[in-house]
Simulated assay, not measured.
Amino acid sequence: MRKLICRVGLLCVVLLGMMGKSFAQSFSVQRIGEGKQAIILIPGFACSGDVWNQTVDSLRSNYTCYILTMPGFAGTASEANPSFDNWTKQIADFIHNEKIEKPILIGHSMGGGLALNIASTQANLVKSIVVVDALPCLTAIYNPNFQSRKISDDEFAKAGAQLLGMGEEQFRRQAYISAVSLTTDSLRYDELVKWSLTSDRQTYAKMYYDYSNVDLRPAIKNISVPALVLLEHPFKKIAPIVEQQFGNQPNFRLEYAGKGLHFIMFDDWEWYIQQIMDFINN
């Protein structure tokens, strides 16, 4: 009887440990490299961690890279209630649980937003951040009067109904149109479309509307670590509006790519990787 109780108790401990790990790491993680300094790379909306492959090839010799793919995106298992705030907490918990000492965060698009949010809420957790083509509030660029507000589940359901109701072929066409608008590298189109098609549609819809409602402009003042922001070339045309969102913080350095679109790592590779190397090596 005593042995049975011990076995049941041990099973409970194991299951609780697995549950805790599952919550903390609902995103997928790939670790590459053995350098002392850790770098966590966070991809953007509906993207695989493979978006960082070329970047990691340049970093792996001197850094330990943790490449994430967020839950429900690009074939990764989805979770019940994805949200921008919950993903922020999960990444912070991952850093704590894995005892990763002062990592550098590199985030693209929504991943850049997550890096900004982590740095603004966890002041002592990270060494520095690199934000690749993300703004504190993208929606405000198109709607200057935008104000973030709490959106009910019913509103999310109604807003996402059109997206969720798309047939596979219509969704594929939309994903292809999106890919063409986000990179000048036509060889990447099929890959971007594949990531969208293998993303969980519920997660896709929920996170699209959730992230559209994010406004980190008030939080920027709380970021005290060095921050490099790499922006796509078209943003240079509205530089004063873009830079106003970052509040002229002295620890922020904003640089604009000389060519290309949203996927700067594809469209202006040499400039992009040189900017990152100069920043993280100083």
Rank of each mutant, 00 (worst) to 15 (best):
V8H: 06
V13R: 05
V14T: 05
K21Y: 15
A24Q: 12
Q25F: 14
S28W: 02
S28F: 13
V29W: 03
Q30N: 10
Q30W: 03
Q30K: 14
G33H: 09
A38I: 02
I39S: 09
I40Y: 05
I40F: 08
I42S: 00
P43I: 03
G44D: 00
V51I: 15
V51S: 14
V56R: 15
S61E: 11
N62Q: 13
I67V: 15
T69R: 04
M70V: 03
M70F: 07
A80S: 12
W87R: 03
K89W: 12
H96R: 12
K99N: 09
K99M: 03
E101T: 11
K102N: 09
P103Y: 13
H108R: 01
H108K: 01
M110E: 01
G111I: 09
L114K: 13
N117L: 05
S120C: 11
A123I: 15
N124Q: 05
V126H: 10
V130L: 03
A134K: 01
L135H: 15
C137G: 08
T139A: 08
F146V: 15
D154W: 08
A161E: 13
Q162P: 01
G165I: 04
G165M: 05
E168V: 10
E169I: 04
E169R: 14
Q170D: 15
R172C: 01
A175N: 04
S178T: 06
A179F: 01
T184C: 07
D185Y: 03
Y189A: 07
Y189C: 05
L192I: 15
L197T: 07
L197H: 04
T198N: 06
S199M: 09
T203P: 02
K206M: 04
Y208C: 09
V214L: 05
V214C: 00
V214P: 00
D215S: 00
I220E: 02
K221E: 13
E232M: 14
K236H: 13
E243Q: 11
F246L: 11
F246A: 09
F252L: 08
F252I: 14
Y256V: 07
A257S: 12
G260E: 00
H262T: 09
F263Q: 12
D268Y: 07
W269R: 11
E270Y: 05
E270N: 13
W271V: 03
I273D: 10
I273V: 15
Q274W: 08
M277I: 06
F279D: 07
N281P: 03
N281A: 12
N281S: 14
